[in-house]
Simulated scan of single mutants.
Amino acid sequence: MPDTRLDLDRIRAARRVIDPVFLDTPLFRCEALGRALGCAVSIKLETANPVRSFKGRGTELVASGLSEQGRTAAVCASAGNLGWALGWSGRRRGLETTVVASRRAPAAKLDRIRALGAVLELVDGDFDMARERAASMARQRGVRLVEDSLDIETCEGAATIGLELTRRPPDFDTVLIALGGGAMATGVGHVLKSLAPEVEVICVQPHGAPAMTRSWHERRVVTTDSTDTIADGVAGRHPIPAVLDDLLKVADDAVLVQEASIVTGMRMLMEHAGLIVEPSAALGVAAVLEDPGRFAGRHLVTIICGSNVNLDDYHRWGAGRPATSP
């Protein structure tokens, strides 16, 4: 079992806390996508829930803990999905939720946060600037700052995906995981390396937001001055040292992919699996497109982590056009 901040017993216990609406998401073989990519492909569909992303697993643990402590408020920075999930989990437990986001965040995500009754504050700049503002607000108000990936609940909530993947002896040999802050990668990776160590864990990030991938390869925190990618959900500039330490122990590889491959991956998921996804969810398919020889003859699982995408952007990127082959 890898020596990380995560604990397998706590992850198992998390399933009793998380609303079942987020658990046991579909896992199915997509033969059409596999034929197009030249390998066997199974999809773990983390968008089949009320917030359309995996983030609800972690926010359920956060909100439950705050409620047990008698706390009534929380603030977070979000590219959109975490804020929506925290708003959903917080509303069920009577928590006042404040979300700080970039003005450049997809309008669809911001609208859904507002619809839950959360307080939404927009800042100029990117996610890391939103994170700085959220931290300042939490200090001033004396409320809980929810930090995705740093807070262990977000990682162990995401890790329950790994428990579902390993419910039976896996017939797959590779799992492709979108890499942003690292909650899903470290969580799922921890479970896989504990229960199915023969499965290769590959993290995928855009060339336009490479900080965590570069950090993994150099085994030290590497920051970037800016990001330039349509995959807003993974576009951080400042990796968290403790999360990187965990990632180094559970990831077998971390790769970067081009924007064009992300768009093609989105098109292929729509055409071959009937899924409209946000760019971050297509990173796994993009990795296969860029290195088909590596995956030929293998059986991989790609985790579809979110489907919160503005449809105008989706069509503007060209993701709605047919893509019959890589």
Results as ranks from 00 to 15, higher is better:
residue 118 A to N: 05
residue 114 R to V: 12
residue 38 G to A: 11
residue 55 K to E: 11
residue 100 V to A: 07
residue 37 L to A: 02
residue 60 E to N: 13
residue 215 S to W: 00
residue 307 S to H: 03
residue 15 R to H: 09
residue 29 R to G: 02
residue 25 T to L: 07
residue 22 F to R: 11
residue 153 E to T: 03
residue 36 A to T: 14
residue 21 V to A: 13
residue 98 T to Q: 06
residue 108 A to R: 10
residue 229 T to N: 09
residue 145 L to H: 13
residue 272 H to N: 05
residue 112 R to I: 00
residue 252 D to R: 05
residue 269 L to P: 01
residue 3 D to H: 10
residue 182 G to K: 06
residue 46 E to P: 08
residue 254 A to T: 04
residue 12 R to L: 07
residue 30 C to Q: 11
residue 149 S to I: 06
residue 234 V to S: 10
residue 206 P to Y: 01
residue 132 E to V: 12
residue 153 E to A: 15
residue 260 A to Q: 13
residue 119 V to S: 14
residue 74 A to Q: 02
residue 4 T to I: 14
residue 203 C to M: 12
residue 260 A to W: 03
residue 160 T to V: 09
residue 32 A to N: 09
residue 13 A to M: 11
residue 182 G to E: 05
residue 64 S to R: 12
residue 267 R to C: 01
residue 141 R to G: 03
residue 269 L to K: 07
residue 139 R to T: 09
residue 109 K to E: 00
residue 188 V to M: 09
residue 27 L to V: 13
residue 34 G to N: 10
residue 185 A to S: 15
residue 43 I to S: 00
residue 143 V to C: 13
residue 36 A to C: 10
residue 315 H to N: 02
residue 65 G to K: 10
residue 225 D to R: 15
residue 271 E to V: 05
residue 268 M to N: 11
residue 136 S to V: 14
residue 163 L to M: 13
residue 65 G to R: 14
residue 223 T to R: 12
residue 26 P to C: 10
residue 134 A to F: 12
residue 200 E to K: 15
residue 254 A to S: 14
residue 325 S to K: 08
residue 79 A to Q: 09
residue 241 P to Q: 12
residue 129 M to C: 07
residue 196 A to K: 06
residue 7 D to Q: 06
residue 119 V to M: 07
residue 125 G to A: 10
residue 259 E to M: 05
residue 14 A to C: 06
residue 120 L to W: 14
residue 273 A to C: 14
residue 21 V to S: 06
residue 68 E to F: 03
residue 297 G to W: 10
residue 258 Q to S: 14
residue 88 W to T: 04
residue 326 P to H: 06
residue 147 E to A: 10
residue 49 N to G: 09
residue 201 V to D: 02
residue 229 T to L: 12
residue 25 T to A: 15
residue 157 G to L: 00
residue 71 R to N: 07
residue 113 I to A: 03
residue 326 P to M: 12
residue 281 A to I: 04
residue 302 T to L: 09
residue 120 L to S: 08
residue 63 A to S: 03
residue 6 L to K: 04
residue 235 A to H: 03
residue 79 A to V: 05
residue 147 E to T: 15
residue 111 D to P: 02
residue 249 K to N: 13
residue 132 E to A: 15
residue 221 V to F: 11
residue 189 G to Y: 01
residue 115 A to M: 09
residue 295 F to K: 00
residue 78 S to D: 08
residue 90 G to A: 12
residue 277 V to N: 07
residue 287 A to K: 04
residue 246 D to C: 13
residue 6 L to W: 01
residue 237 R to H: 02
residue 63 A to K: 00
residue 50 P to E: 12
residue 229 T to M: 08
residue 67 S to N: 04
residue 82 L to H: 15
residue 131 R to G: 13
residue 245 D to S: 15
residue 118 A to I: 05
residue 77 A to E: 00
residue 164 E to V: 07
residue 125 G to E: 12
residue 85 A to I: 02
residue 287 A to D: 02
